[in-house]
Design a protein around this nucleic acid. Sequence first.
DNA 1: CTTGCCGGTGGCACCCGGTGTCACTAGCGT
DNA 2: ACGCTAGTGACACCGGGTGCCACCGGCAAG
Lengths: 215, 215
Amino acid sequence: MTEAAGDARGQTRARIEQAALDLFTLQGFEQVTIDDVALAAGISRRTFFRYFATKADAVWGDFAAHVARLGRLLEATDGAQPVLAGICAAYVEVNDYADEDLPLLRERMRLILTEPALLAHSELRYAEVDRVVAEHVARLTATAPDALLPRLVATTTRAAATTAFEVWLADGRTTLTERLMEGFSQLAAGFPGLGGGSPAVPPVGRPSAGARRHR
Amino acid sequence: MTEAAGDARGQTRARIEQAALDLFTLQGFEQVTIDDVALAAGISRRTFFRYFATKADAVWGDFAAHVARLGRLLEATDGAQPVLAGICAAYVEVNDYADEDLPLLRERMRLILTEPALLAHSELRYAEVDRVVAEHVARLTATAPDALLPRLVATTTRAAATTAFEVWLADGRTTLTERLMEGFSQLAAGFPGLGGGSPAVPPVGRPSAGARRHR
DNA sequence: CTTGCCGGTGGCACCCGGTGTCACTAGCGT
DNA sequence: ACGCTAGTGACACCGGGTGCCACCGGCAAG
């Protein structure tokens, strides 16, 4: 693996990725076959799978790098601020795209959120994110990463982030950063304006035995 | 569609479902082919797809009925209690299984949460749930169902519910209901114990321009 | 220059999930 | 006996994904 070879690989990988993205946005994810992408990228079908494990992976780019960056940002978070604020800041920074990259991001996200096959695949990617965030929370709170609280924080913050993404994408009159922070602040405050202050739901006298009528 | 015919359909459907579940838990989702399931259920491969649109659907049972029931519960929620409390109660009641149904539920959920293909498929199912909850919140708050707040509430509550499911499934020393209510109370309180009271993150002076260095 | 190794590639066969089509059968009313 | 209908099975087909092998280029050693 010489440097030149690595560069060549990176270039063809980029070519495949761009060809795939173009075709997908133009004709729809399902309509485009991998033969189409391979033809457009000037490679063979077999080679496509040497660069991307699945058809969906061609849309996600090097998502693993994003997750790794998020993880590094979280590790570098100082313990002064609240935990949720730190996670919010990390999410914001990871998604702080330069203006010229926004069109590409929009295409990617539109595909991921619109095409059912890609939406399904996304759950697998989000699981990686959740793991990183849960480990971060577990570190700060001295609990196990697979306990309820860390995982709860991880999945709900990620849900908030992706929802912010969706809304931003839909009407696009606001900044992604603004939407993210808006979502996080709502979440951190326990959704004020819905009634029920901080200690609202907590104990609740259990639904007793109640006729278990399910199924 | 006479009554007898409908019954017959229901019976074979149940047979297929059980055969699929048994084989999946025994050998793993990916390892079992649809021919295997068809053979075990005493039908043909083609007939399998007349009962279930996809391989994954055989695991989910009649999930649409669950979603519909959740929707009805939400509609019947009285406006007295806080919104999150109502959603919590609806989730709890939908998932209030009789003891004799718990083993089956565990098998189902273990598969869904463990097998990557099923985990991916789950995102498509959860989208239906989110839609119902978002419409409920939109109704109560007199906002659009596709606005940020309703969707935020829908996705985060659902994330909390599924996480409660996962943790319940993992250690199983507590009730599913308990886990659900624990998760919801944490969420509704904005995760106390992480620092940052209710009005903690909200305004935050924006990350300024900050070198946008992404990509 | 020849030999052998090695990474990237293409071609091929194969598996499997999913779909469209057609022919067959059973039940049922006329 | 006739036709209708619902359910079924068999078959062909498409497309994503994998394993395998053969080829070709560069490159170091002889």
